[in-house]
C-alpha cells in the first residue's frame, strides 16, 4: 500500500510541476505550487506510517504552516503587482528582462 500512496504523491507532484510551467495566470501558478506542497505532505504522512514514528506527521504539520505563510505573502505580492500593472499574468512582469 505504501507504494501506491507514494506513486499517487509523485503523480500529483508532477501534475503540479507541469502546471507551474504551463500556466500564465500567477494565481493559478500559485495553486499549482500548493498542489506540489500537498503531494509532498502525502508522502511524509505515508513514510510516517511506513517507519512507525510520528516524525513524518510533524514535518507535514510544519510544511502546512510554512505553506500558509507563503500563501499570505504570495497573494499579497500578486495583489500589489496587479495594482501597479493591472494584470495577473506572469508574462507581463518582465521589466527586469531588459
Amino acid at each position: 500500500m505504501t507504494t501506491h500512496y507514494l506513486v499517487l504523491s509523485a503523480l500529483l507532484f508532477s501534475i503540479g510541476g507541469v502546471g507551474v510551467l504551463v500556466r500564465r495566470n500567477a494565481i493559478v501558478v500559485f495553486m499549482c505550487v500548493e498542489l506540489m506542497l500537498n503531494a509532498c505532505n502525502l508522502a511524509f504522512v505515508t513514510f510516517a506510517r511506513q517507519n512507525g514514528n510520528l516524525d513524518g506527521q510533524i514535518i507535514a504539520f510544519f510544511v502546512m504552516i510554512v505553506a500558509a505563510a507563503e500563501v499570505v505573502i504570495g497573494l499579497a505580492i500578486i495583489v500589489t503587482i496587479f495594482r501597479t500593472r493591472r494584470s495577473a499574468s506572469v508574462d507581463d512582469a518582465s521589466l527586469l528582462k531588459y
Binding site: 500556466r23 500564465r24 495566470n25 494565481i27 493559478v28 500559485f30 495553486m31 500563501v71 499570505v72 497573494l75 500578486i78 495583489v79 496587479f82 494584470s87 495577473a88 499574468s89 508574462d91
Partner: peptide, 16 residues
C-alpha cells in the same frame, strides 16, 4: 484566500 484574491484580481482574466 485564493478565491478572495481571484474575485479581487482576475476572475475574468483567462490565460492567453
Amino acid at each position: 484566500l485564493f478565491l478572495f484574491v481571484l474575485m479581487l484580481v482576475g476572475v475574468d482574466s483567462s490565460d492567453s
